[in-house]
Design a protein around this nucleic acid. Structure first.
Length: 671
RNA sequence: GCCCCCGUAGCUCAGCGGAUAGAGCGGCCGCCUUCUAAGCGGUUGGUCGUGGGUUCGAUUCCUACCGGGGGCGCCA
């Protein structure tokens, strides 16, 4: 590459289409050769993108475009300016010249580039720093933020691409045999937030909730109700009743192993298509799913489609997948060895070793397909590679806002699901191995792109601190730091109960019941989202229900505070101007607002909700800092200052509101 | 045995190659006749598990250990 091609710098606000030039796609991670047609819509409306583009050009001019990334970051400290780049230090090595000379050279070229809203460049300690013209930059940031609520998608900044085609997100997938607990809720909050973030950044998204209504867990409950005659207590919600049955049946298995034959009989009846047993089990599952949907709706979590495992079986999806796998040689029948009589998928390391410990049995010697087998069929369907489709009906025909649901019968030619180009499965980290088997199967079938775009969005579990375990009456063991949740043993914090407790806590100070409910749901969501995905959440009641500091309550309160200011300070209808000299807290707040699209883009790229929670907290903190360290706007005598600060608060409110809604939280104007 | 995750302040966690390692909670001291004190300021508190290595630069990347958790089923 000549490295001389001039890239025209578009004026602010101009939208351009261009192809990503990095060696690897930042979205899918594959090399450019494998990543087909990913294009990015970028708008040079933010200074940071403009600086990065100008820097890239400057690096080309000094001949290091290949070896040095045009990294531009917010300056570590205000005295270093507004944005800084360490590119000179990296260039020094390539050019074998002094950092200081190169920094000065870059600074000179950047000065000559006349980047809009940059007033000066400086060099300090190897960094080249941009100093912004507050009046120009501030107006840009505020205007973009205030306009944001009206635009359908937030524009991705420089270097961030939108994945083309449909992304299918599967989450929740709680077994339909018990009430959802806080672990299931973590899954649902992650999945729901990822879907919201992708939609907000311009992606096409479909959300599915997989219902395992043919597994052992629901069979356990069927045994408890049908064979043991367990009945609900007066007023006991059906999902909680099932939780109790599940624990009771599991307890009885230990004393009465013969009881497990009852479960085997139930599973056998389902497999054989014996309709009275199947409909009995399906009825249990339906009623529990109704409870799960109600629970999740309290957190504003909804689905486009409920996918029933029984439909995958009834419609012969596995049979179809099996034929594809067998005909392609991806799986083979083991005639001898430890897997004799089974159809197995050989390990990644050796596509022919049927006897390996790492080989995965997909069809047991009794002819029954394993769970992972059905998951392969489902994954193929998700990518539209099965050549078959479900029938669909409305979950609640009387409620158009209820999800669609798969069905084995009926006629629904007008609706279509699946056929995605990318699949995100939100499943806890313990299931990494079977998820890997699924992608291996796709690869063996020759579906390389689908395998590459099959994302197991793994997250660690929620566990109990000793304090939380004690609250639940779990016997403590000396030196033990974590206690696992277990629906089977009844060790759990139910999602509904946790929310009830949060509502109760907030009712003390909330203006009314609706407000307490909204803020409580947001607070619980925030708590479950703020940990990075590979961190086990050490669940603690005091921490989860806390209302001060780094909490959802603080964020929502900050939004209400901004709304309150806007109510009190009337808009006089005269256009604001940004002063050329800003207060420390004003500049800091503008920087946080300016950083929103970057935080959102990074969240979408990494599929990491905690990036967005951390951003939202930093924005709310910046607002508090501003609020506490400037005099009340409502009493501000200088009309220009008043108009500017009002606009600044309006921009903050718009941005924080957008962030909260993208996190699935309410953005209340009063609390 | 092999694989994955975690180890940063008393506690819970951010920080995914750049400038003096941050936040919340807890402790201590302050601030409500001022747009919501669910707030703010100050203070206390860290050999970033340990040893090597790569680099101009490492909490961040590599490697070997140590400690904790999880996974390696003809369960889901």
């Amino acid at each position: 590459m000549a490295g001389r091609k001039r890239v025209p710098r578009p004026a602010a606000g101009i939208t351009q289409r261009r192809t990503v030039t990095a060696a690897h796609c930042r979205l899918c991670g594959s090399s450019r050769a494998l990543c087909h047609g990913v294009a990015t819509l970028w708008r040079m409306s933010d200074v940071r993108s403009r600086i990065a583009a100008a820097l890239a050009e400057a690096l080309r001019e000094i001949g290091v475009a290949e070896g040095v990334d045009p990294v531009v970051e917010p300056s570590a400290r205000p005295e270093f300016g507004d944005f800084s780049t360490p590119a000179a230090m990296a260039s020094a090595k390539v050019l074998r010249r002094s950092t200081r000379d190169i920094a000065q050279q870059l600074s000179d070229r950047l000065t000559a580039a006349n980047v809009e809203a940059v007033s000066a460049w400086s060099v300090s300690g190897g960094f080249v720093n941009a100093h912004l013209d507050a009046a120009t930059w501030g107006r840009e940031v505020i205007d973009a933020a205030v306009a944001m609520p009206g635009i359908e998608r937030v524009t991705m900044p420089e270097g961030h691409a939108v994945f083309p085609g449909k992304t299918l997100v599967e989450h929740t997938a709680t077994n339909p045999n018990k009430a959802a607990h806080v672990g299931h809720l973590r899954n649902a909050c992650i999945g729901d937030t990822v879907a919201r973030v992708l939609r907000r950044t311009g992606h096409t998204v479909e959300v599915e909730n997989y219902i395992d209504d043919t597994g052992v867990q629901v069979a356990d409950v069927a045994v408890g109700i049908r064979d043991l005659g367990l009945t609900p207590l007066d007023g006991e919600p059906f999902d909680q009743f099932c939780s109790r049955v599940y624990v009771e049946v599991s307890r009885r298995y230990e004393h009465d192993p013969a009881l497990q034959q009852q479960r085997a009989a139930v599973l056998h009846d389902i497999e054989a298509g014996k309709t009275d047993t199947a409909s009995f089990v399906k009825d249990i599952a339906r009623r529990v799913v109704a409870c799960h949907l109600a629970t999740m709706a309290r957190f504003d979590i909804r689905y486009d489609l409920l996918t029933w495992e029984s439909d995958i079986i009834a419609l012969g999806f596995w049979r179809q997948a099996f034929d594809l796998l067998r005909d392609s040689g991806a799986i083979a029948h083991a005639d001898s060895g430890q897997h004799a009589g089974c159809w197995v998928l050989p390990p990644e390391s050796d596509p022919h070793d049927l006897d390996s410990d790492a080989a995965k049995v997909l069809v047991k010697s009794d002819g029954v397909a394993t769970y992972t087998a059905k998951d392969i069929a489902y994954q193929l369907w998700k990518f539209g590679m099965l050549g078959r489709d479900f029938q669909y009906t409305r979950w609640d025909p009387g409620d158009p806002s209820s999800p669609m649901t798969t069905s084995a019968e009926g006629d629904s030619a007008d609706v279509h699901f699946g056929g995605a180009q990318r699949v995100v499965n939100v499943i806890d980290a313990r299931q990494a191995y079977p998820q890997r088997v699924v992608t291996t199967a796709l690869r063996r079938l020759g579906h390389e792109a689908a395998a590459d775009n099959s994302i197991h969005l793994a997250y660690e579990v929620v566990a109990l601190t000793p304090a939380a375990a004690a609250v639940l009456g779990v016997p403590l063991e000396a030196g033990r730091e974590m206690y696992a949740l277990s629906g089977r043993r009844g060790i759990e914090v139910r999602a509904d109960d946790l929310l009830d407790r949060a509502v109760q806590r907030l009712s003390e100070k909330a203006r009314d019941a609706d407000s307490a409910r909204d803020v409580a749901a947001g607070a619980v969501r925030y708590y479950l989202l703020r940990f990075s995905l590979n961190q086990i959440i050490a669940f603690d009641f005091d921490e989860a229900l806390r209302v001060t500091g780094d909490t959802g309550v603080y964020l929502q309160n900050a939004h209400a505070r901004a709304s309150g200011i806007l109510r009190k300070v009337s808009d006089d209808g005269i256009a604001y101007t940004v002063p050329s000299s800003l207060e420390r807290v004003e500049r800091a707040l503008l920087h946080r607002i300016d950083g929103y699209t970057w935080a959102l883009a990074e969240t979408a790229r990494a599929l990491a909700p905690s990036v967005l929670t951390a951003y939202a907290f930093s924005l709310a903190s910046a607002l508090s800092d501003f609020y506490e360290h400037t005099s009340p706007i409502v009493r501000e005598a200088d009309a220009e200052v008043r108009r500017f600060r009002r606009a600044l608060v309006a921009a903050t409110r718009a941005t924080l509101g957008d962030a909260l809604r993208t996190l699935g939280m309410a953005a209340p104007d009063r609390v």
